[in-house]
Nucleic acid binder design. Sequence first.
DNA 1: CAGCATCCCTTTTGATACTG
DNA 2: CAGTATCAAAAGGGATGCTG
Lengths: 131, 131
Amino acid sequence: MKQPPVPVKPWPESDPAVDALVTEVIGRVADKWTMLVLEVLADHSELRFTQISRLVPDVSQKMLTQTLRQMERDGLVVRTVFPVVPPRVEYRLTDLGLSLGAAFCGVWRWAEENLRRIEAARAEFDARQKR
Amino acid sequence: MKQPPVPVKPWPESDPAVDALVTEVIGRVADKWTMLVLEVLADHSELRFTQISRLVPDVSQKMLTQTLRQMERDGLVVRTVFPVVPPRVEYRLTDLGLSLGAAFCGVWRWAEENLRRIEAARAEFDARQKR
DNA sequence: CAGCATCCCTTTTGATACTG
DNA sequence: CAGTATCAAAAGGGATGCTG
């Protein structure tokens, strides 16, 4: 049984150049803060800076700024500055960002569904290490 | 239009304790090397240490070891040591790991499909920064 | 409010050498 | 082969002060 029952990768990508690019993109997008920011923006449609910082636990303003800039650069997010005082800046997902959110949907569901299994696996692993 | 056309998060999780755990799990799993190792293991069913290091570009042996240990601890991977010399160690996904691979499938497809869009967005962003 | 800049410390990562 | 150990470099992250 060489092949898993469900194909986990849609098509076996063989072009090394494309593969390298995909790897690079995955490396960028598969980031803790990126995913968490993506999640809250996917849920709320548009948010201000401080709202995001409240919704994403433990993110520093430095990392949040950095993450949002990166996402903006990658075309995942649009940043709208309202010329008012005090300043008002809103973030919302682009279509591209929305599609990434949809792609990550399965991962969030997986995480929720398998919390217990993971905790159990860790406990067992740690117990085995002690012996 | 508050809600995006496609629900990106399956159900609006409100329990703060569960949410924190999900966040923690996402933070662990949404890791560059974890995703890349997951991908090659999903493709090959079982692999030896050096095979993985060849298939995952630019991973150091230290990071690979660390990632594999983490994945083993989380119950995503089984590590089989054959008591021969030279040593032979094989890695394969568990059912849990396989299900995570299936969940990530959409992300890989997304990355492949949107390479160009991301590159274009970056180019445009960088050009705008210069002005 | 939404940041950028700076300083400073901690964590992560990478390169190298060594071992059962 | 499949690691572990070690050290140096880089990235991450907090705190504070300052702007438009």
